[in-house]
Design a protein around this nucleic acid. Structure first.
Lengths: 111, 111
DNA sequence: GAACTAATTCTAGATTTGTCGAAATAGCAT
DNA sequence: ATGCTATTTCGACAAATCTAGAATTAGTTC
């Protein structure tokens, strides 16, 4: 049972790495159906195992989703989760006092 | 010498910890002049040395600023940096995405 | 089944992070 | 200077992270 704060922290931490930020950027600018891991690997020029590790971190955090297509795995960004994350930052920072918790963000319904 | 990506990653990583997120929230909701470390410590109920470590992480990342007032140190949030960070996510990392659902309008401009 | 490709998982080592008690520092008062 | 308070820095340790070569799994094709 991970709370809202823990979930936001996990996602922010997942974003908090230069390589993962670069991966996300590539994924975002790739096709909507998702970018194959192999293409990310050749473009970013990092070992496949290292890339896979970072992709797993992003996927575990819910920031990207993965779908198999033959032998290739396509990764695509989850903009809803990304949006919910930046929303969280500002709602947490700018909304009223601690005794006034905000309602759960409607755009963050990732199981 | 640190590039934009590295800086954004450092800041996101600094936010990516439940305790630091809680600290930031307290700081944001405290007085505009800044919240004394001691008050944060008593409210969050964590050892002073642990708190100090997390505050240093946030300050090093530029997310909070510190000012001395007598024997107490007051920490306050740097909303400009926070704002720039969420802007970075949408403008420099996730811009151009096919499914980009219009970047969020920040709800906090208390400057 | 064998061969080939795509990607992950295993394994291991180096580095970093998180935690917190103890010691040190900074400022203010007496 | 002495004492007092607020906060940081030091030191040590466990745990997590990052990296990447080697081995493995998943899928396709012949």
């Amino acid at each position: 049972m991970t709370g809202r704060v823990e979930q936001a922290a996990e996602r922010l931490k997942a974003l908090g790495h230069p390589v993962r930020l670069a991966i996300l950027r590539r994924v975002v600018q790739g096709p909507e159906a998702g970018t194959p891991a192999g293409e990310l690997q050749s473009r970013l020029d990092i070992p496949a195992s290292t890339l896979s590790h970072h992709l797993a971190t992003l996927a575990d955090a819910g920031l990207v989703q993965v779908a198999r297509e033959g032998t290739t795995l396509r990764y695509r960004a989850d903009f809803g989760v990304l949006h919910a994350l930046t929303d969280y930052i500002w709602q947490d920072c700018c909304a009223g006092g601690a005794a006034d918790p905000l309602p759960p963000s409607p755009c963050c319904d990732r199981d």
